[in-house]
Design a protein around this nucleic acid. Structure first.
Lengths: 372, 372
DNA sequence: ACGTTCAATTGGAACGATCAAAACGCTAGT
DNA sequence: ACTAGCGTTTTGATCGTTCCAATTGAACGT
């Protein structure tokens, strides 16, 4: 009544264990009649090869490891959640498992990974939240540990040789800003994180580019407020930017956008128009009907896991990649999507001269075109 | 250059592999001098026993499996995130790994678990999001799969024999409601989910209990609004309840509370007082300074994992459980915590006759006592 | 008829650990 | 001196699979 094994099956069928093994791993080596007989026995008995024994013999366990960060902020958390979920799905679809581990810092992470490699024979691991000067890629590379990174090698996009995928935040804010300008807004402000390299800078740049190119603004600082992340901070920043004459906002985060959203809603003089676009398409944004820039994290997960596993197994099938731009030797920049909610429902933009271009749009339901 | 093994180490030291093994697993069997010599070699070489080989030999892999749900809503997601994180931590601290898997439904989950047991020799698994009439406990029990559930066996709390832990939502809303009443509020409303057994009913009950006992309200429906979850819905419900004369609110979810928070904030006539208490202490709640009821999910994770692993390894050490109430044969109801934010800063409640008892409190900073 | 070739199948060894039992050297009891 | 007992160490078998080399048997050409 215990679990069938290769040997028990083989004995029962009067063949050798290797024949049973071959039916599974190299069917072409087995005579069709035998193959079928074995095949049936396998199905009837519900035999499944022991992944553990396979791992011992093959010296790899079809497992991918990933570090789990404490859910410091729920917003980043939601994104990582989506990522992780897709990683597990993709890995499963390729016959791999995902194990989690925690680590206090990057050094500890590398140590933990060494351990997982040595003890559990994991095949590869995924890095997330890469930073400028991140020590992990180099160390893992030196240690011969296969890995993929969700997050670009900041500052070394073109020279780094490891597998990575990241979201093109700059393209995201660029699209958002252009969208607003296309609708007639002429004073698009930006709420960003404190100065520093990385994600924040990347996202700000997209906005700054467009502001400069399309609106001819020389000094973007005029419509820029930087602050630590947070809803309350977003409200304050929005108030400030309104005072400076901004008529629309792009935000580095949904937290900011949520705070800004509040401010706009509280001001009847704006006719309920909410030209705000956040970042990350958080559940909160979805809930309150805020437009936001969605990171294609699922695409990133699919890409990374597929490549990692394919590389590990030698399966050289084509990676099912969505639209992405190649960078460096094995980098991929994925284009985010503009998730329009309140905004999309608004009618066509007013003429360029319009003072408050979106004034005709009130709710999140399509209205009859505002007759002139 | 390659990884040291028991044999390679033994050969190098001129002892048998079993001696090395004993130094690790049963040091008392080894002569001190030998033990030390081996010990040093182990440390010097950085030897770590292969978990894979151990798993094969011992027929268990020191691994716990857990299903990952799609992040349908980010709120529940945040809670599950916290839970998962602690599960991983606790498992690690006991030398166990956590593997994730996905499943379309409960049947698929059981199948996936069977597979993990057979192929990966996992020791146990964790169930979450249990429902009334959940088929999983019975099936897993019948299949002889060790498991613990985060979530009570609804309707069978006293008869179910499996290990479970859940949060006493009723106690949470009770505490919240009492807190508000203690501060002088006399018309405490409730925003709940649509009628139905389970979490929603449990949380509502705590409020209803107190309303009846302390305020002598016969028909709680008077101050109760039910709705699908959501921020917008929360606003609508709050508006409704304000109209009905409520002066404080307890909510089934932080989404509701967030929506209600908006309404209160928008009404200057309330003097900026925000007697609202949400549920789950979501990042959003933290961000906007909303009081909320915190589920001790970390405690639940610790308890479940500890018990599971201890049971599996025979380690009968005491489980480090925080305050919990025993239910049935192996159930645990954990008491949630009232996370006071805006409210806690308010001064002592006004006398019972006070119309708007919290009127003296404006911001989240302590104020000088409002002189009568 | 006989070596060659090839398809099909088989048995031995290995992966790296643990369990169980045997063997070893020593001391102590009779 | 012989053995029983004990502490220490070793050997053999096993977990379930895959790799590798060897074996079998039939078909083939010469």
């Amino acid at each position: 009544m215990s679990r069938p094994t290769l040997v028990s099956l083989a004995r029962e069928l009067g063949v050798s264990r290797q024949t049973v093994s071959n039916v599974i791993n190299a069917p072409h080596l087995v005579r069709p009649s035998t193959r079928q007989r074995v095949q049936e026995a396998i199905e009837r008995s519900g035999y499944r090869p022991s992944a553990v024994a396979q791992a011992l013999r093959r010296q790899k366990s079809s497992t991918i490891a990933m570090r789990m960060y404490p859910t410091s902020d729920g917003i980043n958390g939601a994104v990582m959640d989506r990522f992780l979920h897709r990683v597990v799905e993709q890995a499963e679809s390729m016959g791999h498992r995902v194990v989690l581990f925690t680590a206090a810092d990057d050094r500890a992470e590398i140590g933990a990974l060494r351990d997982l490699i040595d003890r559990d024979s994991i095949d590869a691991c995924l890095l997330t939240s890469t930073t400028a000067g991140d020590p992990r890629p180099a160390e893992l590379g030196a240690a011969g540990i296969a890995f993929g990174a969700f997050g670009r090698p900041w500052g070394e996009e073109n020279t780094a040789s490891h597998l990575w995928a990241d979201v093109d935040g700059r393209a995201g804010t660029r699209a958002a800003t252009e969208h607003l300008i296309d609708r007639g807004y002429r004073r698009v402000g930006f709420i960003g994180w404190p100065d520093g390299p990385g994600v924040g800078q990347d996202r700000l740049q997209g906005w700054a580019d467009v502001i400069r190119e399309r609106l001819g603004v020389d000094d973007p600082d005029e419509w820029l407020v930087r602050s630590d992340d947070g809803i309350v901070q977003g409200s304050a920043a929005a108030t400030d930017l309104l005072r400076r004459g901004c008529d629309a906002l792009v935000c580095t985060s949904d937290s900011f956008a949520t705070g800004a959203f509040d401010v706009f809603r509280g001001r009847p003089d704006l006719d309920g128009v909410l030209p705000i676009i956040g970042f990350d398409d958080t559940p909160v944004a979805r809930a309150i009907g805020l437009s936001s820039i969605t990171q294609p994290v699922e695409a990133a997960a699919t890409l990374l896991v597929h490549r990692l596993v394919a590389r590990a197994t030698g399966d050289d099938g084509a990676t099912p990649i969505p639209s992405s731009r190649a960078v460096g030797s094995d980098g991929h920049l994925l284009t985010p999507l503009l998730q329009l909610r309140t905004l999309e429902a608004a009618p066509a933009p007013a003429p360029l001269s319009g003072r408050r271009p979106g004034a005709e749009a009130g709710s999140d339901r399509p209205l009859e075109p505002a007759g002139g």
